[in-house]
Every structure is written in C-alpha cells, then in structure tokens.
C-alpha cells in the first residue's frame, strides 16, 4: 500500500516485469580501429617472440636429430666430424653461474636487509640508486674490470685456497705445486672462479632488487610484535623478515642465476676456452655455451651453425625453466601474493 501511494507512475503489480537492460557496448569506428591496432601490436610482439623460439628449435633440429641423446653427453665440439655435444660447455656454464650465485647471494641478501632494516632513512634512496646503477653498468665494463684488475687480486687467494684446501676435488689445480712459492701464477688465471666473481657483480643487483622489495613488504604489526616481545633487531630479522620473504629470497636468487647462465661478453673476455670436463674452479680454462656461440658463429657450414643453435636452444630452455620457477616462487610466497610476478 505504501508503494502504491508514494511512487507515482509505477505500474501496478500485474504489469509484466521490465526486461533487464542490455549492457552491450557498441564501439564506434575509432574504437574498433583502436582495438584492432592494439591487438595487432600484441600479436606482432607475440609472433616475433614465438618466431625466435620456434626458429631456434627448427634450426637446431638438424643437429639434434643427427646426434640424438649423445648431444647432452658428448664433451667435444667438432660438428664437421659429427662429434659434438654440450656436456662440457653446459657444465662450465652451470659452474660459472654457481660460483656467481655463491658469491652474489650473501652480498645481495645482506645489502637488501641493510637497506630495509639497518640503514638510516636518508641513506636508503641513495643505496637503492646504487644497486640499480650496478644493474645498469654494461657487462663489457665489468669484463674489463675483471680481466685487468680483479684477476691479479684473485690469483693470490686462489693459490691460498688451493694450498690449504686442494684436497677437496673442486679446489684441486692440475700443474700447481703448492710447496713451491715460485710456481707460475698463470695456472690460476682465466679460471671459473674469476669469471664467476665478475658475473656475480651483474647478478647481485638483480637478486638484491627482488629481495629488497619483499623485505619492504613485511607487515609493520609483525615487526613491532617482535620488538614488543623483547627481540633485538637481528632477532626480528631472523624470525619475521626472513621467513616472510622466503619466497622472494629463493625467487630473486634464481632470477639472478638465470641471468648468470646467459652472460656472454664478460665471460668471453676472461676465460680461456677449453674442451674438456673441468671441475676445478680455480684452474685455468673453462667454457660456457654463450661464449662458444660467440667464438664459433662465423663457421662456414650450415650444420655447425645448426649445432650452435641446438646449444643455444638448450641454454634458452635452461634459462626459461630457472626464470619461471623463480617467478613461481615469488608469486606463491605470502609476500608475492598481491603482486603478479
């Protein structure tokens, strides 16, 4: 009764219910062009990117079908004699990336924690800029620095590690005599260790950025809760920040590893390429997939190029796996739940 009296013009209850309005947009000509153009650019990017992957795959097929599974286990590179495989170069790549990861991880994590937890406020933005700048320095510059400055310094440390820890297989060096202080230092140059430290300079900022972002999202309430319970600052970091940021720590580390796998020029400048399985990180001679490609791309035959493509494809696949695992870790962590990594 109220309804009937107060609202004029409303049809009585017997009238059919009004149809729901059709909420269909009818874009004008401009919008149709806009949508088509935007989709076209998206499609172009998609096809370019897909073309790179597909093309690598198709080109690599010739070499891969010729060798089959032995491509992964052969440690030689003689495509003209049909004896080639990536066991050696892939091992070198992984070793360099591992050394880089081991060197970079503690520095990246400490720097990230320092920026978010310890540093005074006025220092923070400059530190963030410093880390970003480290990421922007071209790799050829790091390569020059590593070859002409760092190598001379690392040789002494390499010799010391070899003298005292040479019994660990990784630190053994063929041809080095720990008892003679005058033995040539050249066996320690151009080693996996030097290349790994230089690559660590490029990996560190990538890891640090991801970790810093995660640590800066630690809920204030949990931080203050830890302090209120009497925790010291380190205690708070240990029980609140690090557990909260675990996904970001793992993800950031792996992102850095992905970068380390693909690094070319700095590695090419430092290592002296060898084609034998070399586990000894202190010893001269190493190799990596990308420097192999850079050294051999101009070889004449189609087939050897196809072999290089196959090596590149394996490298790309490895990088992709590492990167997607990294973003999966970041996304599923508590801290990464809100952001889309």
């Amino acid at each position: 009764m109220e309804l009937m009296t107060s609202i004029p013009g409303v049809a009585d209850a017997n009238a059919p219910a009004p149809q729901p309005r059709e909420l269909q947009a009818h874009p004008g000509r401009g919008d149709r062009y806009f949508n088509r153009g935007a989709s076209l650019s998206g499609l172009t990017v998609l096809s370019v990117m897909a073309a790179v992957g597909l093309f690598l795959g198709i080109q690599a097929w010739q070499a891969l079908s010729a060798t089959g599974f032995s491509f992964l286990t052969t440690a030689e590179w003689q495509p003209d004699r049909n004896k080639f495989g990536i066991a050696e170069v892939m091992l070198g790549t992984v070793l360099i990336a591992l050394v880089a990861g081991i060197v970079a991880f503690p520095i990246a994590m400490s720097t990230a924690l320092f920026i978010t937890e310890v540093a005074p406020k006025w220092l923070r933005s400059s530190l963030v800029a410093l880390v970003d700048l480290m990421a922007a320095v071209p790799s050829v510059v790091y390569g020059l620095w590593g070859l002409f400055l760092l190598q001379g310094q690392v040789v002494g440390v390499s010799r010391w590690i070899n003298t005292w820890f040479g019994w660990i297989p990784f630190f053994a060096v063929d041809g080095a005599d720990p008892n003679s202080p005058l033995s040539a230092a050249t066996v320690y140059t151009a080693s996996t260790l030097v290349a790994g430290i230089v690559v660590a300079m490029m990996v560190m900022p990538i890891q640090c950025v991801v970790m810093r972002e995660v640590f800066s999202q630690v809920p204030v309430g949990e931080r203050e809760g830890a302090f209120a319970l009497g925790s010291t600052r380190w205690g708070m970091i240990r029980v609140v920040s690090i557990p909260f940021g675990r996904g970001g720590i793992i993800g950031g580390t792996m992102l850095g590893l992905g970068r380390a796998l693909g690094e070319t020029i700095a590695v090419l400048l430092i290592i002296s390429p060898v084609f034998q399985i070399n586990f000894h990180v202190l010893q001269q001679g190493s190799n990596s997939v990308s420097s192999l490609i850079a050294l051999r791309y101009s070889e004449a035959s189609d087939f050897s190029l196809s072999a290089l493509m196959a090596a590149g494809l394996v490298l790309f696949a490895a990088t992709l796996v590492v990167n997607f695992t990294a973003s999966w870790f970041v996304a599923r962590s508590r801290s990464g739940a809100s952001s889309e990594a």
Binding site: L46, V52, M309
Partner: peptide, 24 residues
C-alpha cells in the same frame, strides 16, 4: 598469453637474439 611470452623473453640470453638475427 602475451604477458607470459614477454616475461619468458626477458630471459632470452642476449647472444641468442644475435644468433637469431644472424641466421635469419
């Protein structure tokens, strides 16, 4: 799909971009 592919492509080692253009 495009976003995933673009993310994947940030992982492309730079030497492979060169190799792709060199080969094609």
């Amino acid at each position: 799909l495009v976003r995933t592919v673009v993310t994947a492509m940030t992982a492309l080692p730079s030497i492979l971009a060169g190799l792709f253009i060199f080969a094609t």
